[in-house]
Amino acid sequence: MDKEERHIFSVMVENRFGVLARVVSLFSGRGFNIDSLNVAETHDKSVSQITLVTHGNAQIIEQIYQHLNRLIDVIEVTDLSAGTHVEREIVLIKVATDNAQKRTEILQTAEVFRGRVIDMKPASIVLEVTGDEGKLEAAINIFNTYGILELARTGKIAMMRGATN
């Protein structure tokens, strides 16, 4: 078996009800897994962008690409992993802060990851960290040592570098 790779697909779709279900059931029907998924309207209100991270060998990735393209409501599919691209993800982390010293430490650590404080309570703090997957994983690992109370991730958004056609 050739080796499995992670791929990020940007899928431009008609902004209508039912479209996401078609995209998602394409994966479930074939037993392919979606690692992360992000959907939102674009600057053109009639178009939504789905950013989808999946993995598989070259043949599976090719199948996913072709099947996405085959859906009637899909306007364009781009395999961002095929070129140079930028990707970002946001994570909100709620960390326990039982004493002042721990809070200071957490704030200093947040600084290292350019994290922003978006809420602070006597016993907890909510931080926002933005970055690629590696950075977020590193941040999560560190904050875990202080005790993460709650965590929410957006899933990736991504685009090609440079001008597009």
Binding site: F17, G18, A21, R22, S25, D73
Partner: peptide, 14 residues
């Protein structure tokens, strides 16, 4: 019916 037939049709409309 749109949900039931999603994997067995080329396209569907409600």
């Amino acid at each position: 019916v749109i949900g039931v037939t999603r994997p067995i049709c080329k396209h569907s409309y409600l």
